[in-house]
């Protein structure tokens, strides 16, 4: 009967938390390795389309981003898609200056390898995207990449 009775005198030993730092450090390293710092604060809604035939942009230091989508603050900016460069909204006319400015920051040897990544919301109409592409052509920023998510491969039928 008294076999299972707690011995009043014996204190249950505290659970050792010595391994807690190890666990947390493990998580920490995982996030440190996989983390990519956010380039900008997004002011637009961005849900990218899916695609299967995608390539990875190898060198992030050679990539400039152009964001296009519906502003998140629709009360202030309306619902028409807007262009965002760095941290501010911009117009189509600003694209040329932006690309030239970004190009000037880099050594001349890599100018040919700069890629402009278009991060466009999937609901955007092509009109504004085409305008942006025309501007990029004007400043000889010919290498572009349509940023997409990877499509989960599922059978269609």
């Amino acid at each position: 009967m008294s076999k299972f009775k707690k011995d009043g005198k014996k204190n249950t030993p505290a659970v050792s938390t010595a391994s807690l730092p190890d666990i947390v450090f493990m998580l920490l390293f995982f996030f440190m390795v996989t983390t990519v710092m956010r380039e900008v604060d997004l002011k637009i809604k961005l849900s990218q389309p899916d695609a299967t035939e995608i390539e990875k942009l190898e060198d992030r230091s050679l990539v400039d981003y152009v964001y296009i989508g519906e502003p998140t603050n629709t009360a202030l900016y309306g619902t028409l898609p807007k262009i965002q460069l760095d941290d501010a909204f911009a117009t189509v006319e600003d694209i040329q200056d932006y690309v030239i400015e970004k190009r000037a920051d880099r050594p001349e040897a890599v100018h040919g390898a700069i890629i402009v990544s278009l991060k466009v919301d999937e609901e955007t109409k092509m009109g504004i995207v085409t305008d942006v592409k025309q501007e990029l052509r004007e400043v000889q920023a010919l290498k572009i990449s349509y940023s997409t998510r990877e499509k989960v491969n599922k059978k269609k039928f």
Partner: peptide, 23 residues
């Protein structure tokens, strides 16, 4: 850990690469 959790974005730079024609 919390710092990295907050700043992390899992989106990687994948995309369809294209070349525009010159002007």
């Amino acid at each position: 850990l919390v710092f990295f959790l907050v700043t992390t974005t899992m989106d990687s730079s994948w995309g369809l690469s294209r070349k525009l024609p010159p002007p």
